[in-house]
Structure formats: C-alpha cells, structure tokens
C-alpha cells in the first residue's frame, strides 16, 4: 500500500508531528501530567478521536502495523473509519490481531490480550481532566494538580459510598499515576484499569478538542483510587460470552427482543475470535 497523493505521510505535516512528539516526550517524562499541545483541526469531528489520531499520526512509521478498535471491536463504524483514514493517508499495514499490531488506537477499551514491550497503545480521550466534574475551571484544576491537592476527588468517592454504599464510578475511573498525578484513564470500563498498572507497552493519551496529551511509560505504577475498607472492585456482567464462553473478558449486552431477552458477547472481538479458533 502507499499513501494517498497530495498528503504528507500520515496526513500531518512533519513540523506538526515534531511538535506533537516533543509534547509526548514531555508527557512520558512526567507520567500522568497533562501537557498542552497545539491540536490541529482534523478531517474528522471533535469527539471522534482527533486527539488519538494526531498521536498515532505523529508516532507511526511506514513499517508499523496499525490496529484500531472502538468499544473493543475492530468492526465498529468509527474504528473502520479511522483505520481507513490511516490506510489512505499513510498506506500502512493494518491488522485486527492485537499481537500483530505495533500501534493500537483505542476508544473505550484496553485489549484483553496482554500487551508487550514495543507496542504503543493510543487512547482517544474526550475529557483529559479527571477533576472536571468537581471543578469545571481549568485554571483551578491546573493549580490543584500542581499542588497535588486531590482531597476533593477522595471526597467524591466518600460521597458515593455514603449515598450508594459503594463507589459509583463504573468507567473513566480515576487513577494515581506513579504516586503523583491524578489521571483520567479515558472512558474505559473500570474493569480495564488494572491492565494499565505496570503495562509493558507505552500508553499515550490524546485529547484533541481539549488540546492535551499525557502518557504512562512502560512498567509505571497506576493505582485506582479507593479506600482501605472499600477497595477498588470493578464490575463485570455475571455471564459468559455466548460465542466463546469466556467468563474473564468484558462483555457487551445485546438485546434480542423487546420482552427482556438478551445475551452477552465479548467486547474484544479479536480475543473472542482467538478463543474460538483455539477451541477449534
């Protein structure tokens, strides 16, 4: 495959890519810290993954193999659209197999297949600020990060337990990175949070509309906030995948009729396929 004529490799011009890579280096040097960057207008709308696309465009090379998932699946419309975009403007090889990819761009999931050294996981991030529901003013949240003033987030968890008996955050569950910065893991289910901890792959986060990048370098400590007597316990549907029978993977609920009928399927379509192939 080759890149489309009329565009630079991977759409962005080289100066922009260099600017983004400099911001990424800073982000890697300060794990969990949000680095402002000159986010560009992209040919996809804000909210569709413009941040992730810019990160991918800046780190991808002609020898890379790209996988794009949305909700864990390669065949969701937005994943298809972004994969087609890179196939068109970068001409790189694409894959649906987690193990074969060198770069995986994701919205809302971390693959079930453990990632390895040398792989890069690029997250699409709608709201990089973990404190935004508690304090909407960015000038103030920046100060809170600078002072590691995170008592307010703990208060929110306290309030959840007081009201509901347990912490009521099920996705975008806040984490402390390297014991210093509070970070939004992007709206992945809390089920995926433990995979971030000491992950061998590099994790990069791009928020296009909010113009922020951040990163978790390989093997970095990522801890989900909790209380000693109310430890972090992510929810998962108590069911098995109707296709591969998995009881460990994260499941999507599919409504089959309007009389309460439903079934559950692996959200990670590649992992489900692997399991079915192995079962032969």
């Amino acid at each position: 495959m080759s890149a489309a004529p009329g565009y630079n490799f991977a759409y962005l011009d080289e100066n922009t890519k260099r600017m983004i890579r400099r911001a990424l280096l800073k982000a890697v040097a300060i794990p969990g810290h949000q680095v402002p960057f000159g986010s560009r207008e992209m040919p996809l709308p804000y909210g569709w993954g413009t941040g992730g696309i810019q990160v991918t465009a800046s780190v991808i090379g002609p020898d890379d193999t790209l996988k794009v998932i949305d909700q864990g699946a390669d065949d969701t419309t937005n994943a298809v659209s972004i994969r087609r975009f890179f196939a068109r403007v970068a001409g790189v090889a694409t894959t649906e197999r987690t193990a074969e990819a060198t770069i995986i761009q994701t919205r809302h999931r971390i693959p079930e297949t453990p990632l390895r050294e040398g792989q890069i996981l690029v997250y699409q991030v709608p709201m990089p600020e973990p404190l935004f529901r508690l304090e909407p003013r960015v000038a103030e949240t920046r100060r809170m990060h600078a002072l590691a003033d995170y008592g307010l987030m703990q208060v929110k968890l306290y309030e959840d337990i007081a009201r509901h008996g347990h912490i009521a955050i099920s996705y975008n569950y806040p984490v402390m990175v390297n014991g210093r910065y509070l970070m939004a893991p992007s709206p992945i289910p809390a089920f995926d949070n433990p995979k971030m901890h000491r992950m061998p792959a590099l994790q990069l986060f791009g928020a296009g509309r909010e113009k922020r990048l951040y990163a978790v370098p390989p093997y970095t400590e990522v801890r989900s906030l909790d209380f000693e007597d109310h430890p972090f316990r992510p929810p998962r549907a108590e069911a098995a995948c109707a296709l591969c029978g998995s009881r460990e993977s994260y499941l999507d609920e599919v409504v089959t009729d309007d009389r309460g009928g439903r079934m559950f399927l692996c959200s990670d379509t590649d992992w489900c396929r692997q399991r079915r192939e192995a079962a032969g």
């Binding site: 008592g151 307010l152 703990q154 208060v155 306290y158 309030e159 007081a162 209380f227 007597d229 109310h230």
Partner: peptide
C-alpha cells in the same frame, strides 16, 4: 462549606486531604 457535599463529607475532606484513606475511620 461545600454545599453539595454531605455534612460527613465536609468534615472528612480535611482528613482525606491529610491522607486518611479508611472510610470507616473517617466516618
């Protein structure tokens, strides 16, 4: 005060800011 936070949360905030992480003890 934080008017949207419960009375217990208001009192607990300073404890949590000081590092308290045991819900039962804070309460």
């Amino acid at each position: 005060l934080r008017m949207g936070v419960s009375a217990g949360g208001n009192v607990g905030e300073r404890l949590m800011a000081a590092g308290a992480r045991h819900y039962g003890a804070i309460r």
